[in-house]
Design a protein around this nucleic acid. Structure first.
Ligand SMILES: [Mn+2]
Ligand SMILES: [Mn+2]
Ligand SMILES: [Zn+2]
Ligand SMILES: [Zn+2]
Lengths: 134, 134
DNA sequence: TATAAAACTGTAATCATTACAATTTTATAA
DNA sequence: TTATAAAATTGTAATGATTACAGTTTTATA
């Protein structure tokens, strides 16, 4: 168990109470929550929380490369950047599953002209449950 | 040079004039255009074209696995499915560059529970031009 | 030629995200 | 401590890409 405040400071983020709460929520919920899910989950412990703050905080985390946004059709999902892994997006139920597959690193010659922050490997299709149901 | 009408028919799409035009535009413009770009480009040759038709047609192409949507923050970009390749998204100028890298295929055991339509490998970062500019 | 189905159009509604001004909290210095 | 400035947070309004939908045109079929 790591210290969130220290980790945020290491990434040039002042660890306000709200920011720590949002970060810890992401750490304990690696199932790619949306802004609404994060907002609703934290409302009881942070009654004055504003949805704008959730947006701002997540954008800050993304800027500092602590969080990766997963763009879905309807709304963004957020994933703490931990071990490199791939995702499977079900196009029926819009669930994002983790896959234990590492995205390939760009070789030097291909990456020569780019400054690469992060990598996403996404498989699109239909999950088992949705295949059965129809 | 392939015959578009025939190709569409092979994918259960009735090759209307509008659909062929939109498909051919995508074939000749592999730079990941948006709906607005497609719409504006085709307006001169199809003066009565509606933006809704562009949306509907692209959704149809996606359903039939002819086109892959690339989700950006602001709006969707569309890429004809041809040779497997990766993308680099510049987070400053929102350009999507093609990379000559093949996304890895899921091995049988990992893909056991999923029906995989397509794969996306996306590198996020800053392109050369944006690095220089600031 | 009549009828039905499919394709297309135009406008209105949706809704996640952003902009922005006001307020509260936190840091800094007299 | 107290005053002042900076940063963080809030709440509401605006934005804008996408979708819904009803009406119209085109195409297929009998
Ligand atoms: Mn994940
Ligand atoms: Mn491409
Ligand atoms: Zn599913
Ligand atoms: Zn750029």
């Amino acid at each position: 168990m790591e210290n969130t405040s220290e980790l945020l400071r290491q990434h040039d983020i002042k660890p306000s109470f709200t920011r720590v709460m949002i970060f810890d929520y992401l750490k304990e919920n690696l199932n790619h929550p949306t802004v609404d899910e994060i907002f609703q989950a934290l409302q009881t412990s942070l009654p004055t929380l504003s949805k704008t703050t959730v947006y701002n905080t997540l954008d800050l985390f993304i800027d500092k490369h602590l969080v990766q946004p997963l763009l879905m059709n309807q709304q963004k999902h957020y994933d703490l950047i931990t071990d490199p892994h791939a995702h499977f997006k079900c196009e029926r139920c819009d669930t994002i599953f983790d896959l234990d597959v590492k995205p390939p690193k760009l070789d030097k010659s291909t990456a020569a002209n780019y400054h690469v922050y992060g990598t996403q490997l996404i498989y699109r299709g239909v999950c088992e449950k949705c295949q059965k149901h129809g």
